[in-house]
Amino acid sequence: MEFSMGNLQFYWEKDTVLDFYQKVADSNVEHVYLGESVCSKRRELRLDDWLEVGRELSKKGKSVVLSSLALLEAKSELATLKKVCLNGELKVEANDFGAVEILTDAKIPFVAGAALNIYNQHDLKVLLDRGMQRWVIPVELSRDWLANVIVGCEELGIRDQIETEVYGYGYLPLAYSARCFTARSEDRPKDQCGLCCIKYPDGRKIDSQEGLELFRMNGIQTMSGSIQNLVNDLPSMEGLVDIVRMSPHSLEVFDWLDTFQQAVRDNKRIPLQGYCNSYWHKIEGMKSI
């Protein structure tokens, strides 16, 4: 089992990002995703900067993938997406079927991101034919669902070509909207947002009136209120999952990366509190089992 560092879903200042990737370079993670997948206005790092970070990580032996935007609305965003897809250096994670189209058209192999609706073996077959090399399962799917997809892939004779990645740790991306919730929470119109999400490096909490942590707003994205942590579910991924994704919201992710990697070796249960893991167990994602 290998591990990946997911792309930063929150908006951090450039220096913080560069420091973060220095640590990633020194870590034991095998795969690294870079780039902006949430909001096209976030430009602390531009494409050239990401490519430069990618080069440094590649030198350290990491397998690097550039993530692309999940929700494309303006024409300018489509133009940016084309540049990302045709960057000429790094493999791309497609998070919208527009990216799949551009990559297929250019005959460039790709990773199918969690924001693509892939729910069964037939979807995978279509995408394999178009150059998909790996898929990240939608965050709402369970172990049972994944196992059924894999059985279906065996029946279609494509099991050997399927590489599967699962969100193992981090806040889960649950929804995308036209509305910027963070700007709205500060009474700012989206077009004059002032990039205020940079003030919330791990998002802004949305709790129930009874104090239950429900969601996190992250610009136009709504995330899970709890961090998903599948460290104790690693044994049940055997034979199904090739890569486990660590999705960062702080430097804590490095400790957890170590813990996950250790857990694979030791097969020991880690006491957890305040995390969720129940999408994997086929019930509401916010629960913990």
């Binding site: 709402e140 709504t222 509401e284």
Partner: peptide, 18 residues
């Protein structure tokens, strides 16, 4: 939310539009 890409419902109940 962008339809077909919203899991808020399954996060809270286990069941979503998709």
């Amino acid at each position: 939310m962008a339809e077909g890409r919203c899991y808020l419902s399954s996060y809270m109940t286990g069941e979503s539009p998709n």
